[in-house]
Design a binder for these strands. Structure first.
Length: 275
DNA sequence: TTCCAGGTGCATA
DNA sequence: TATGCACATGGA
């Protein structure tokens, strides 16, 4: 796959390592829409529309350099897939989710989004996050930016509850008073284990949410978020184990630096009912 | 009606 | 350290 910065966005050549549906519908991001088969993705205060062309895709955006990083275009996913295919369990999931890429998302938005995601379903997560955008974010023409921490500080616990956050309203209210965007950015230099502990110390952030923020925000490959789907997968393909911490440890020791990638293909595969 | 969704916090032993 | 339970909400 090749990419090229154009006046109106980014031109992608090749379809094997970039598939909008697989990238966006694999549960790593909640802020996107599909209209007439065309995906538009929202991140922080930016958006990009992904148009299919004969030879690849055009990522139409005013912020091309942001989305080069966002879509992780500098990473060679054919190499990632080659590595993963050395694990026999990965062959079918990698083939099925061929165009997946792990997004490098805005840290603050990722943190808030995955706190909302806990014990929740994707449709409702999207609804709640949309309401948060619309109520507290700045209007950017035809969409709302994800609000900043300062903007969200105006919200009370009751406000979040009214947006549908349920019992997570308290987590949101509290976490906003524990960290700001600069804290998160400054943690980028920490090693994964220490960074993980920092995240887990935050309200509403346990092992699973921390691993999602590490993978989808901080771009750490050496984490393996274990949710109900991965739990099911493990019981089917490995062994019956109830302890999610042990499952996580086993999977991280198996996949090492490629844990995050493996996890995402497996999650997409499981959720699609391919099992 | 009951179960489940990309789980976490807290009490208890 | 580890186990058990409560927690909002809406769709299946």
């Amino acid at each position: 796959m090749k990419y090229e910065i154009k006046e109106n966005g980014i031109k992608i050549t090749g379809k094997e390592d970039f598939n909008p549906e697989h990238i966006l519908e694999c549960g790593q991001i909640f802020s996107y829409i599909k209209e007439d088969g065309v995906y538009t993705v929202f991140s922080a205060d930016k958006k990009a529309k992904i148009l299919e062309t004969e030879t690849g895709f055009l990522i139409e955006t005013e912020s091309p350099s942001y989305f080069v990083n966002f879509f992780d275009l500098k990473t060679d996913y054919s190499e990632v897939k080659k590595r993963l295919n050395k694990f026999s369990i990965m062959e079918r999931p990698v083939k099925f989710g061929y165009g997946i890429r792990i997004l490098k998302q805005d840290l603050f938005e990722t943190l808030i989004s995955f706190i909302v995601s806990a014990n929740n379903n994707i449709k409702r997560i999207q609804m709640i996050l949309n309401r948060i955008r619309a109520k507290y974010g700045v209007k950017m023409g035809d969409f709302y930016a994800f609000p900043t921490r300062n903007q969200l500080l105006k919200a009370t616990e009751q406000d979040f509850a009214e947006l549908g956050a349920g019992y997570r309203a308290k987590y949101l209210f509290n976490v906003l008073r524990q960290v700001n965007e600069d804290d998160l950015t400054s943690w980028q230099v920490l090693e994964t284990a220490e960074l993980r502990n920092k995240l887990i110390s935050l309200c509403g952030v346990g092992p699973k949410v921390a691993d999602c923020v590490l993978l989808f925000g901080f771009g750490r490959g050496d984490v393996f978020p274990v949710d109900t789907w991965i739990h099911q997968m493990y019981n089917k393909y490995y062994s019956n184990l109830e302890n999610r911490e042990k499952i996580r440890q086993n999977l991280v020791s198996e996949f090492g630096l490629y844990s995050g990638f493996a996890q995402q293909y497996l999650f997409f595969f499981m959720r699609a009912g391919e099992i």
